[in-house]
Design a protein around this nucleic acid. Structure first.
Lengths: 193, 193
DNA sequence: CGATTCTTTGAAAACAGTCAATCTGTGTGG
DNA sequence: CCACACAGATTGACTGTTTTCAAAGAATCG
């Protein structure tokens, strides 16, 4: 159950967790199964908990005035799911978070996370996770504002090749900020070259 | 000199800095003036230091294969400038960072920042800054992938009205991921309504 | 097999980018 | 004070990219 998370923490920090720290981590995170399409979180709600994905995949998306979904984030095992903004600020969320595959996750409330942040190792891990997240997001902003549909797809192919196997094209298209038709054309065009 | 930064730290943390902590902060940050167009950092370099802006404005941008600039971030007083990615990972940067206005900043090296992170208050502040940054970036990704040029401009107007006074339109256009001509047309269209 | 879900294709329309010219305001130096 | 340069903003005509809508073709799953 918890090995994946404990290994993850180990990989992200120089100092190992003590036995009692490990207990604290186990008490903080509750195992939970999500079936495909099941919500972790819905728009308008205040985010109470965040999930570490042990296996499976989740997505975070907004729904615009025309009812179209726009995927701001895709998370697979060994990464986090939830709305950081609502989680941190305790404001109503602009996003939905649901499982795209049947998912096994470890779920923690805000209070529990804050409480184990007293542990130096956890603090270190949280800092690193936040940094990595911010770095990935800036890079995503950069590709969004500077590249064409074709170039954005090529970038995804290079950066997250595992996504191509794992998610259907209409999901990738939404993540890349284009329609599924455009992605289909971009791909058939790329094949010809 | 340092009042702005010390006030900023105070605003971001519950626990105040001790006298010796304040000294440590002062020793960490060196005041520096940047004239308009002067670089804090150039593409290809490994980012050694990060700047807290006391007055003025800086921008972070990439330059694409055609030589066009794409602004990924605009920073004004009471915010930070520098390339987080290169700073954290010590990898060659994909971005330029320069002053858009004559700027007065407090500059700190990576080592010095890491060293004062031993202070709990500073740790708290860094955590919060990282979170706010990640939140702002996700929101930017969301608008980039889901809104039209016109809607993106309306969003900027609402979210950062001070930017409209402060930066010329071609800078805002680049930040929004459109050409200056498109922004000009979007604005004249909005006025008519 | 039938029912979803996903992908592709075509044609038309909307949107945004390009290029070039003009216009505006600002500040500098003669 | 004027002339000029410079940075910024606007406009028009054109091109290219992306979306939209509709239909049909795969693939997958119970």
């Amino acid at each position: 159950m918890y090995e994946t998370l404990l290994k993850y923490i180990k990989d992200y920090s120089a100092t190992p967790l003590s036995e009692s720290d490990i207990e604290a981590v186990k008490n903080t995170f509750a195992p939970k199964r999500f079936r495909k399409r099941q919500f972790l979180h819905q728009e308008g709600e205040v985010c109470k908990s965040i999930a570490f994905i042990v296996s499976g995949a989740m997505r975070q998306y907004s729904v615009d005035s025309k009812g179209a979904e726009h995927i701001v984030s895709l998370s697979i095992e060994n990464w986090w799911a939830g709305d950081r903004e609502s989680f941190e600020l305790q404001t109503p969320s602009k996003y939905f978070v649901d499982a795209w595959e049947d998912t096994y996750a470890l779920v923690a409330t805000r209070e529990a996370i804050f409480s184990i942040t007293a542990i130096p190792t956890i603090r270190e891990v949280r800092m690193l996770v936040n940094s990595k997240n911010a770095i990935a997001l800036l890079s995503r902003v950069n590709t969004s504002i500077s590249l064409s549909a074709e170039e954005r797809y090529a970038e995804l192919e290079k950066k997250y090749p595992e996504f191509l196997q794992r998610f259907p094209q209409h999901i990738l298209a939404s993540y890349l900020g284009m329609t599924k038709e455009t992605l289909s054309r971009v791909r058939s065009h790329a094949v010809k070259k």
